[in-house]
Simulated scan of single mutants.
Amino acid sequence: MELRSIRNPLRHLPVLSNCSYQIKSSQIRTFSVRSCRLDVSESHKLELVLEVKEKLEKDYRSLPLGKNGRDDDDMILWFLKDRKFSVEDAVERLNKAIKWRQEFRVSELSQDSVKGIAETGKAYVHDFLDVNSRPVLIMDASKHLPAVHDAAENEKLCVFLIEKALSTLPEGSEEILGIFDLRGFGRENTDLDFITFLFDIFYYYYPKRLGQVLFVEAPFIFKPIWLLAKPLLKSYSSLVRFCSVETVRKEYFTEATVPAKFRDRNVTLEF
């Protein structure tokens, strides 16, 4: 990806803390921020982060500050990457995302606040990462009952678990793995509204955080539902893989880390 050149890459340096730089032969060679050495292209990204921050302060001053706020460098950089480093596009997306977090009260979600719906066992974050060092969000479709469970509570649980999974990202990892266990899926479990909600929040508010989605042991009844849902999922439909339990077990986990529901019952683990 080609980024526009910087006429004066040191223009914003005075506002940075713990930042040192070297000048040699009238050119910028390297500089470090928080002990991380960056080249010129990285310094350009940093300048774009500051530019987004200034625009948010000017045009959307009412947005909150702090983590996941309009001055959160990591969040700003992530949305810049998603928007191919377009400042205007990133500002627009960030404004919507931060407002959504306020309205949805994401910061107030907790284990206690979703306890009732979580006890159904319909969804949870797995205790181990997959073989690609991704946190794993598992959904048991047969336990999802839209006629019984409150839709708002389903959405709260969904967002809480996404936040929980992202909080466990190891150094160098950026995405999570989603697994839908479709064994036992029936008409009473069908919920296009929830599927749309799930993929929409990933698309708009957690861009590029969903690495892959596994639909495990999809029954025949699920096929027409997928045909209806696929156009609603936008580009995320390309992340979906239909597979078997055996594939999950052999390609995504080790014997020690495979989720209990996908474990080979003939294998006894020793810890």
Score class of each variant (00 low, 15 high):
E2Y: 04
L3R: 10
S5G: 04
I6M: 15
N8L: 09
P9K: 01
S20D: 05
R34K: 12
R34V: 09
C36H: 13
V40G: 06
H44D: 12
L46R: 11
E47C: 12
E47H: 11
V49T: 12
L56A: 03
K58R: 13
R61W: 10
R61G: 13
M75C: 13
D82K: 01
R83N: 11
F85H: 11
D89L: 13
V91N: 02
R93W: 01
A97K: 00
A97N: 07
I98A: 01
Q102P: 00
F104A: 08
V106H: 07
V106P: 05
V106D: 09
L109H: 05
V114Y: 00
H126G: 01
D127Y: 10
L137S: 07
A141M: 15
K143P: 04
P146I: 04
P146M: 11
H149P: 13
H149C: 11
A152F: 08
V159S: 07
P170Y: 00
G172R: 00
L177G: 05
G178D: 02
R183L: 02
F194C: 03
T196W: 04
I201W: 03
Y204R: 14
Y205R: 03
A218L: 04
A218K: 02
P224M: 01
P231L: 05
K234N: 05
K234V: 05
K234D: 06
S238E: 07
S244R: 04
V245Q: 13
R249Q: 12
K250I: 06
E255R: 02
F271E: 14
